[in-house]
Write a protein that binds this DNA or RNA. Structure first.
Length: 413
DNA sequence: CTTCCACGGGAACACTGGGGTG
DNA sequence: CACCCCAGTGTTCCCGTGGAAG
């Protein structure tokens, strides 16, 4: 065997000889809904108790489901919905469950349009007046005698743009002759009803179900259940699952996070051609998930936001944590001029900064500097050089790679 | 008590991508 | 075809406001 051919062959051999540690990795994705949801029996039963009246031909109460991310709200709702449809078929009571994610369909028009399309109505993406879409949907659903359950996931995302849509939906039964509609709202914002029209609030919140966060033990059970299906037997070191569970329990008991962690750990092990998944891979995975998230977020930012971020990166190179909006705005303005992009107003830029804050890339706190006014003190919460690298992948920002902000001489002790 | 700067709510506007009508 | 209507999004304009240094 001569060296040359070995190395060529070696490349592909290496890739083919993957120690396949996954049996079925789809099981670890958040889109997968298992048949049995551990530690959620109470919630399943509660929801089923409310919805069972549909099978008796009555309209179930509207339900509001509360719980932090990754506590199984969506999974439970979908699971119970599926069971309801199935049982309804057996008993000859037509029930339909419609799932809507309000983060995707986040306006009145789009929500009504997608609901109507569920009944094979052709609604253009835009153009019609909203009440026409509403009428279309109403007629479609009222064609037959049936009970429709509409699941509104992330319903808080809808409310921020006016709650008339919820008002209309809660009152739709008054307009219907044959069909009946009831709503299931899912939210992770415990206070979101505060800003709701009181009529909507009382109607939507006829019943409430709370999903408490999982504790570390419960997450461990969930991981065990899924790991059994996902991995080949005994490829996980003993400590892997407890560690994943512990990490996720710190993050307010987010089961989705735990599953991601387990999956990424497995993928890392696979890539390293290891026979087993070890504790250190879990730690790597923890970091990888976080950096991947940041890179993804920064990459997909609109150009203006990228520029704002870049100006704070410039400033934090030689200032640290005390960047004010004014400073950042000046540099932003300069850079816009340099690359020929129109500058936004300061008002708008403060909004962009707040958005970056929400995304966890920045940390902006409002401080009052007495005589010297009021401002945001901005602090980057991601590493500067890797952020720069990601930002300069954008061809529009490329010319700024050599840009040096003026006024670098203010170094406070 | 004054003063200062930017915060942040709200109205208004421009623009986009679509529809219906004469 | 021209023209106006509609929802939605991003932006600008206007302005009242907070709160500690001076």
């Amino acid at each position: 065997m001569d060296n040359g051919s070995k190395s060529i062959k070696g490349i592909f051999e290496d890739m083919l000889v993957v120690v396949n540690i996954f049996e079925n990795r789809e099981v670890l994705r958040s889109t997968y809904t298992p048949d049995h949801l551990p530690h959620r029996d109470d919630q399943v039963k509660a929801l089923a108790t409310i919805l069972v009246s549909a099978l008796r031909g009555e309209t179930p109460s509207n339900v509001l489901i509360y719980g932090k991310t990754g506590t199984g709200k969506t999974a439970v709702a979908k699971h119970v919905g599926l069971e309801l449809e199935r049982t309804g078929e057996i008993y000859g009571v037509p029930c339909i469950v419609i799932y809507m994610n309000c983060e995707v369909v986040d306006t009145q028009y789009r929500l009504l349009a997608s609901l109507a399309r569920h009944f094979d109505k052709e609604i253009p993406m835009t153009g019609w007046p909203t009440d026409q879409v509403y009428t279309e949907f109403k007629n479609a659903i009222d064609k037959d005698k049936r009970i429709a359950i509409i699941i509104l996931d992330e319903v808080d995302k809808l409310v921020s743009k006016g709650d008339d849509i919820l008002y209309n939906l809660t009152r739709i039964n008054a307009d219907l002759k044959k069909a009946k509609v009831s709503l299931i709202g899912i939210t992770n914002d415990l206070k979101f009803t505060e800003f709701l029209d009181p009529r909507v609030k009382s109607s939507l919140g006829e019943e409430e179900i709370i999903f408490p966060p999982y504790d570390a033990n419960q997450i461990r059970d969930i991981l065990h259940q899924r790991a059994e299906m996902a991995f080949k037997s005994s490829v996980l070191e003993e400590t892997v699952i407890p560690l994943c569970a512990a990490y996720a329990a710190q993050e307010h008991g987010d089961a989705r996070r735990a599953l991601d962690l387990l999956r990424v750990s497995g993928e890392l092990a696979e890539r390293a051609k290891a026979q087993k998944v070890t504790e250190s891979q879990v730690k790597q995975a923890q970091e990888k998930i976080e950096t991947d998230r940041v890179v993804e977020v920064v990459k997909t930012l609109p150009t203006q936001s990228k520029l704002v971020l870049l100006s704070t990166v410039h400033l934090s190179n030689n200032g640290g944590c005390n960047i004010t909006t004014g400073e950042a705005y000046n540099i932003y303005k300069n850079m816009c001029r340099l690359i020929g992009i129109d500058t936004l107003t300061q008002r708008r830029v403060t909004d962009l900064i707040s958005e970056l804050d929400m995304l966890g890339i920045l940390n902006a706190t409002i401080v009052s500097k007495g005589r010297y006014g009021r401002t945001k003190e901005i602090c980057l919460s991601v590493p500067t050089d890797s952020t720069r690298r990601v930002l300069f992948e954008d061809y529009r920002l490329k010319p700024l790679e050599t840009y040096n902000p003026p006024g670098q001489m203010k170094l406070y002790g």
